[in-house]
Structures are given as C-alpha cells and as structure tokens.
C-alpha cells in the first residue's frame, strides 16, 4: 500500500500522517504542493496544519495548489482520500466534501482528547470500526465548527454520510455534533480530530486512530 502525504508550506502534521501510514504497514510517499503527479499512490492523506498560514481562509489557497488538482481528479475517480483538520478544510474548499469549517463557538483554539462515535463504518477509511464504537482521539483546532445549510445537513444525515460525531459536550459548535463526513461514494473522508495522533498510547491518548489507516489497508487490498 503506497499512501501519498501532501506537504504544503505551513503543513504541520505530515510527519505524523506518514508515521501512521507506516504503523499500518503502508509506505508513505511524500507529495509536495507543487507536484503535478501523485507518484502512483493508492491513496492520499491531506494532513493538518496551517497551509499557506491559513491566509484568506483556512484551506482557501491550498485548494489551488497544483497537487490538489491531481487529488481532485483522482478522488472523483474513486481514490481513497482522507483530510484531517486543515486537510478537511482543504477538501471542503475544494468541494470534494460539502459544508465549511468555521471559528470555534468559544473563539479559543481547543486541544483536547475527544470521544467520537463511529456513525458509518462502510467508508474506505472506517471499515475496521464497529458501528457506534466510541474512540478517543485528539482534537486540536481553532476553526473546527462544522457548518452547512439545512438541505446539505439533511442530505448528509439521510444518506448516512456523517462518519464521526462528537460524544459529550460539543467542543466547537459543529452542527449536529458532526466531527467528520464522507462523500457520496465513501472514498473521501474529512474529519477535524486527529486519528494520526492516536496510533500509540505512548504519544497519544490511545491507539484508536490506527483503525482508519488499517481500514485503508483493507480497502486497497480489496481494490
């Protein structure tokens, strides 16, 4: 399994995403924002950070990076793509996923260990989890509030496209406690919390996040 991990100027969690891929026995392939090809990878992770300093709006500049044009094309053809935190924001800006991420309702950056419930275990990235399993992974973001219009929310809810929901107190004001969503095909997933920081209980709160990368392994092997 070869998984591309994109680095934009200002990307921070690329090393963590690469490590998570390795923990799932995959090969992490670094992709640079200026690249015009995906180096034959099987899947792509768009990691967290502050791409281009979050200038203009989180993810607004990154979506125009050359490598993202390749990602958009591949995603539309069914390649598994995972956007974490800033990566989720970028996928939303690129219209691979609906809705937008806005400033946390309490206005502070929030870093905490967050319980999530798995709401959909049929995507390319969540098949290893039991439905409604509760997992504990770090959440760390200042603009993590998921927002969408009523029609979009209904579309997401009716079609089982909410992948993760926050359990307990809503940490950032997200609509319907949404922490992560998928596209209609289930190959593109975006979430604000950080599964790549929860692959080893030594450095994370748990290893609950590893399931996402192992799920991908199953998806790639089956394909």
């Amino acid at each position: 399994m070869r998984v591309g991990v994109i680095t934009f100027p200002g990307t921070l969690d690329d090393v963590d995403a690469q490590r998570a891929v390795k923990y799932a026995d995959g090969e992490a392939v670094p992709l640079w924002h200026g690249d015009h090809d995906l180096k034959g990878v099987d899947a792509v992770v768009v990691p967290g950070g502050f791409s281009y300093g979050d200038y203009l709006r989180c993810g607004a500049i990154a979506r125009f990076a050359p490598v993202m044009q390749e990602v958009i094309e591949a995603a539309n053809k069914g390649m598994p793509v995972l956007g974490i935190c800033n990566g989720f924001q970028i996928l939303a800006e690129a219209h691979l996923l609906p809705g937008a991420l806005v400033r946390n309702h309490k206005l502070h950056f929030v870093c905490r260990d967050q319980w999530l419930s798995v709401e959909n275990n049929t995507t390319a990235w969540t098949s290893r989890y039991d439905l409604e399993a509760e997992i504990l992974v770090p959440l760390k973001s200042g603009e993590g509030g998921y927002q969408a219009d009523e029609d979009t929310l209904k579309e997401l809810e009716d079609n089982n496209r909410v992948v993760f929901r926050y359990v307990g107190e809503n940490p950032n004001g997200s609509r319907n406690n949404i922490a992560g969503i998928t596209n209609a095909k289930g190959n593109v997933v975006g979430l604000m919390p950080h599964p790549e920081h929860a692959i080893d209980a030594l450095t994370g709160p748990t290893d609950d996040g590893l399931g996402m990368f192992l799920s991908l392994l199953d998806t790639v092997v089956k394909a």
Binding site: F109, C111, R112, H194, L202, G204
Partner: peptide
C-alpha cells in the same frame, strides 16, 4: 488546552 501538545507525535 489552547496549546497543541500533540504535533510531531513525540510528546510522551
């Protein structure tokens, strides 16, 4: 809670 303590994956 306003500081990222996880980035780079080395925090024990």
């Amino acid at each position: 809670q306003q500081y990222d303590r996880y980035v780079r994956g080395g925090t024990v």
